[in-house]
Design a protein around this nucleic acid. Structure first.
Lengths: 201, 201
DNA sequence: AAAAGATTAGACAGATCTGTCTGATCCGGT
DNA sequence: ACCGGATCAGACAGATCTGTCTAATCTTTT
């Protein structure tokens, strides 16, 4: 509750930091508890007192990653004015992630690949994906497109594909490709009709 | 008794079949050797005589999956005539995969998420991705687009995104969304200038 | 029929992992 | 100063995993 001074982060914070580095770079299953506590400089009892078990630590790690990514995207979007620019700006924010020291793909995809099907880890991934989907839908609605949900689904595909390609192909330029494709989709998507007939033929 | 061919598959085939089911549905790390041999009805020594170690078994499993998917896609593409239909037909083939009994996402993405960075597993994934990329590039070239590689990259993003969404969102209709987006990208992509004209068939 | 090679069941070794427990030590609030 | 909670180091139990090895049984070839 009391805010820590800058001298020494709490055991919880150090554990989350270590989890963030090790789980993300090497995978959830391959990194054992011992490596986490060694890297965090924390006793094993502190870990189990704080989180209870490994799965809860993984969920907390995913949660912290989610808020970090959300903040990063939203901050990047403040640079853009028009709804269209902001829709495409999501891919710019993604590109910044790709060029980070070493990007290893979507943490939620990786963690889900290692977790049983109906675990709390999958639920954390669902949360994150719902947020991304909601963001695209909201921006598409603001931009006045006729089918914001459908457009958001298409853009989400590009967003996922870019993250996957950036990792699997070790190609950070995937976000640029995705942005260009997204621009083409926006150009092709019909706007909501403020009034008269639809443009057929 | 004297029948030696069709009645009983070899130990290798049964192991690959078991690996295909268990590794794909539950993950590579979480499924142990004991589960594999039990499910295959094979002795442990046979597994290690045949494959040497677990990683080789995983690679063989990925290899068999790759050829299976390639066959499926190519067979589906024979239904279509024009290059454009065949480009979009890749997403139809993908949709058939999604509606399979239980689809669990791209096996290569899952396996790579659990494997160390420079393993032979990653290399198997690279092979598969290179094939998909080459297929899109080839079809885009046949269709006469000005920038086949660039278009193939965009379509590959949709392909990856659809596979990822089908798994993460448990939404097999992702291939339909991807197909629609791909059609829009094809409409927007410029055609190559016809250097040598051989117009009609 | 007999030899040679596969295949089987399962014990075993060695390593590793999660989670618990003990007791000592540090540190902030009253 | 003191007390209670947080944290520490590390041993320990119990389970699990990969890979090896033995010895018996089945299959094929000579």
């Amino acid at each position: 509750m009391a805010t820590r001074t800058a001298t020494k982060p709490s055991a919880r914070e150090r554990l989350l930091e270590a989890a963030n580095e090790l789980f993300y770079s090497e995978g959830v299953q391959t990194v054992g508890i011992d490596r986490i506590i060694e890297h965090a400089g924390v006793a094993k009892a502190s870990l189990y007192n704080t989180f209870g078990n490994k799965e809860s630590l993984v969920c907390a790690y995913l949660e912290s990653r989610k808020t970090r990514i959300q903040d990063r995207i939203l901050r990047t979007l403040t640079r853009f004015r028009t709804p269209r620019e902001r829709l495409l700006g999501v891919f710019d924010a993604q590109g910044e992630l790709f060029t980070a020291p070493q990007y290893n793909g979507c943490a939620f995809v990786r963690a889900t690949a290692e977790a049983p099907d109906d675990s709390s880890i999958s639920r954390a991934a669902d949360d994150y994906r719902a947020w991304v989907r909601g963001l695209f839908t909201e921006l598409a609605t603001e931009a006045g497109y006729a089918d914001p949900e459908g457009l958001a689904r298409q853009l989400h595909l590009l967003y996922d594909g870019a993250a996957l390609s950036a990792r699997m192909d070790r190609d950070p330029s995937a976000s640029t490709t995705a942005r260009a494709a997204a621009a083409a989709l926006l150009d092709a998507a019909p706007l909501a009709e403020p009034a008269t007939t639809s443009p057929g033929s």
